[in-house]
């Protein structure tokens, strides 16, 4: 508990609306939020984990164009029948975030999975990038 309280103070874990793209307008009348992500570099791949509550595997699109990886999650707001929203601390909307990848990612082998509103992307490093690591031996 104390640990999270600390986290909350040092990090803003609350939903943030994404900045509008330059000169682009939305056709859907919903807000767009920036999902919070963890990006972990591992020896053979890069792991991207994004919190997108309300989106499921059918409503999330992951696209890679050139070297820009975009994740987009469509959220259909659940409005309880015959109730009014009396008090709101968070907004509901779609999620979008883009990342520029270095050329060391093998775009054809990206794996994506979704569970409980958390998207997990595994971006395998290309063979070329894996081979680039040179071990330095100490001179005799």
């Amino acid at each position: 508990m104390a640990e999270l309280a600390q986290e909350v103070l040092t990090k803003d874990v609350h939903k943030k609306e994404a900045a509008a793209g330059d000169g682009t307008e939305r056709t859907r009348a919903t807000k767009i939020y920036t999902p919070l992500v963890d990006i972990v570099e591992r020896p053979n791949d890069i792991l991207v984990v994004a919190d997108m509550p309300g989106a499921d595997e059918n409503s999330v699109d992951v696209t890679l164009e050139k070297n820009v990886l975009t994740i987009y999650g469509r959220v259909e707001p659940v409005v309880p029948v015959d109730h009014r929203l009396a008090y709101a601390e968070y907004g509901i909307g779609d999620y979008e975030r883009s990342f520029t990848l270095s050329d060391q990612v093998d775009g054809d082998k990206i794996e994506a999975s979704m569970k409980d509103g958390v998207l997990r992307l595994v971006l395998p490093k290309s063979e070329k990038a894996r081979l680039r690591k040179i071990t330095v031996k100490s001179a005799a």
Partner: peptide, 17 residues
């Protein structure tokens, strides 16, 4: 794990109440 490094760590972890 071994050989892992975080580029970004924005998500929360731990307990809440």
């Amino acid at each position: 794990g071994e050989g892992q490094s975080y580029h970004r760590k924005e998500r929360w972890e731990g307990e809440f109440s």
